[in-house]
Write a protein that binds this DNA or RNA. Structure first.
Length: 643
DNA sequence: ATTAGGG
DNA sequence: CCCTAAT
């Protein structure tokens, strides 16, 4: 019934490269999907992807003609939807208009998806923060724009993602499948549809033909064809009514939302769409446990919103997953194959937070405290409504996280390993001990924190640690736990905690962050959480508000929703910021260098702010020269009131 | 419980 | 980040 199909997203023939798809500039990208009996496309599940991956692994330079497993349907070429525009320019075989149109379509579709995601997230946020204060909510939104690194990540992700989003165009083409008894030969849709463009160079959407209200359900195939042309600016030879309807619906709504079959067109734009099938509503609310899906927001609703709001500016390619999911929801209308693995979810959220720390939540958070500082350049600008930034963030997150990457690869985080190994050295029997630990950890899994410590202790036989200094033992213990934990996580990826993920927007949700909790044994080491720019901004702001040293206060107010950021963390971070500000500011070249190597280039303005605050603080509360790290160089900079 | 500082 | 000493 279900088959896997690799969908090549690049139109190979349009590129100057051999069939090996090795061209660097135009890599062949493909997305695995499963074709349901009814022709619905469903994103391949992790398992499936993994499976196929193995096959592909053998020779990646070869075109992904995954054959050999009865499961694989094959690889189907479709219009290129490569993320980089450069490719578009290379499309020689396709009329420019066609190419651009497809691209635009893609973009819109993705944007649509973005919108949906955003909506969902927002809703979720609301749910978790009943105390939302609209007025304040805008505070940090703009921060996103200050996070170049995030955008970078995004871009990088877009260009490197091994698996590309598939074009809506490809979806329909795959519909007619074996599973479907009453389908036409695959050849037809696939070949004639997507690639036919060359012949219709006069492809220009003409909405004038579909003014007013149209009900796809009532249209004949011919009419559908006309509508199709009006919508996409080109003809189609596909005779599948269902396909046409879906296609048109998608085209009109710029999304995968095909729930509507009646549209009202005015002034060449979709003014309204009428949902006639609400099947997806009920099912949505029932089976969505994905955090991102969170509050089941009516997709159709969102769709309308987006459509009416008009322009979507950016198009996150990485949205594929969610997009397809929607597709799945709406097209299938009934069964949902598989929800994303928790791990996957984790990845998403992680990415999420990474990108833009939590503008939504953070802002709300702040709002609660009524801490709207009039200064801070950053804040004023923001408006929560800026879908732009929000979208970007989302996109970013997805792209950056490399959703497509097999989970396991991302597991390891930082240190444990080496320490663990060193530990082994000390303890001949270490191996077994470690094994035990791991086992225990696995067995106990979630309750580890506290018990974990105990376990650890139990693990160390008296003889084992006799030779170690107490402190050493403690450290070892920690490492072991960390290691075990890691193993644990890997083994039970399904139970992965959101920890790493949430930086901001969801951080408050991840109460159960694994890293910190250690009750008493104080074993586990906190997972390293990179500070997002947003957080830094918050910190700076907090400092400016309450002053240096009032970390508990700042923590309470600005990082209330970030359990993993302790006041000490804030302090440390501030220290680092200070160091950075002094190290980078004065010598200009230094700044550049540091930026090069530094993972997270902190915007100079921020650093200046830091310096400024510090200076102020030193002048007011302390006798100048008290600060060890920078005492020598007191900087007298007139700058003030910025940020 | 918080802070400051060293590691 | 962790840890500790000093408040």
């Amino acid at each position: 019934m279900e088959t896997l199909a690799g969908v090549d997203s690049n139109e190979e023939q349009h590129f100057e490269k051999t069939s090996n798809g090795k061209t660097v500039a135009n890599p062949v990208l493909y997305q695995l999907v499963r074709v349901e009996g009814d022709g619905t496309l469903v994103p391949a599940t992790d398992d499936e992807v993994m499976e196929v991956e193995e096959l592909l692994e053998d020779d990646k330079s070869e075109l992904p003609l995954v054959t050999g497993t009865g499961q694989l349907e094959g690889c189907i070429l479709s219009n290129g939807i490569s993320s980089d525009k450069a490719n578009l320019e290379n499309l020689e075989g396709v009329s420019l208009s066609e190419a651009t149109e497809v691209d635009a379509e893609q973009l819109n579709a993705h944007l649509e998806c973005m919108g949906v995601m955003l909506q969902k997230v927002k809703q979720e946020d609301k749910i978790h923060l009943s105390t939302a204060a609209p007025a304040q909510s805008s505070d940090y939104v703009k921060v996103d724009d200050l996070c170049p690194s995030q955008n970078d990540i995004l871009l990088a992700g877009e260009e490197k993602l091994p698996i590309k989003v598939q074009s809506p165009e490809t979806i329909p083409s795959l519909l007619p499948k074996l599973g479907d008894p009453c389908v036409k030969p695959i050849v037809e849709p696939i070949i004639s549809e997507p690639l036919m463009s060359p012949t219709c160079s006069s492809s220009q959407p003409d909405f004038s033909k579909i003014k007013g209200e149209i009900c796809l359900n009532n249209l004949s195939i011919k009419e559908l064809h006309e509508t199709f042309k009006a919508t996409f600016g080109r003809e189609t030879s596909v005779k599948d009514k269902l396909w046409l309807k879906r296609r048109i619906a998608m085209g009109l709504t710029n999304s995968c939302d095909v729930s509507s079959t009646t549209f009202i067109i005015r002034d060449n734009t979709l003014v309204k769409k009428i949902i006639q099938e609400e099947t997806h509503h009920s099912m949505e609310s029932s089976d969505d446990d994905c955090p991102l899906d969170g509050e089941t927001s009516s997709i159709s609703q969102i769709g309308d919103q987006n459509i009416e709001s008009g322009k979507r500016l950016r198009t996150p390619k990485a949205e594929f997953e969610c997009k397809v999911e929607e597709l799945e929801n709406e097209q299938t209308g009934a069964k949902r194959v598989r929800k994303p693995t928790k791990r996957y979810i984790e990845e998403l959220s992680k990415a999420d937070n990474r990108e833009c720390g939590g503008r939504l939540l953070s802002s709300v958070r702040d709002a609660c405290h009524g801490q709207s500082s009039p200064r801070s350049l950053v804040k004023p600008v923001c408006n929560i409504g800026s879908h732009g930034s929000a979208l970007v963030t989302r996109q970013d997150s997805f792209g950056g996280s490399g959703v497509q990457v097999p989970y396991v690869s991302r597991m390891r985080r930082g240190r444990p390993r080496e320490n663990f190994m060193s530990l082994m050295k000390y303890h001949p029997s270490g191996m077994s001990v470690a094994a035990k630990l791991v086992k225990k950890a696995l067995g106990v899994r979630r309750q580890d924190n506290e018990s974990g410590g105990k376990v650890m202790k139990a693990g160390h036989s008296p003889t084992d640690h006799q030779q170690l200094a107490v402190t050493d033992i403690e450290k070892e213990k920690r490492n072991i736990v960390a290691y075990a934990e890691e193993q644990n996580v890997i083994a039970f990826s399904g139970e992965m905690q959101p920890e790493l993920g949430k930086l901001d927007s969801k951080e408050n949700l991840d109460t159960e962050i694994p890293g910190v909790p250690t009750a008493k044994g104080g074993i586990r080491r906190k997972h390293h959480r990179a500070w997002s720019l947003c957080e830094v901004v918050k910190l700076v702001e907090g400092v400016s508000r309450y002053g240096i040293g009032r970390w508990s206060e700042i923590k309470r107010v600005s990082f209330a929703s970030s359990p993993f950021r302790t006041s000490v963390d804030l302090k440390d971070k501030w220290r680092n910021l200070l160091r950075a500000s002094f190290a980078q500011g004065p010598p200009d070249q230094m700044a550049r260098n540091s930026r090069k190597h530094a993972a997270a280039p902190i915007p100079i303005p921020i650093l200046l702010r830091v310096r400024e605050l510090t200076e102020k603080h030193s002048q007011n509360d302390v006798i100048p020269g008290k600060f060890p790290c920078y005492s020598g160089r007191s900087v007298h900079e007139p700058r003030s009131g910025f940020l």
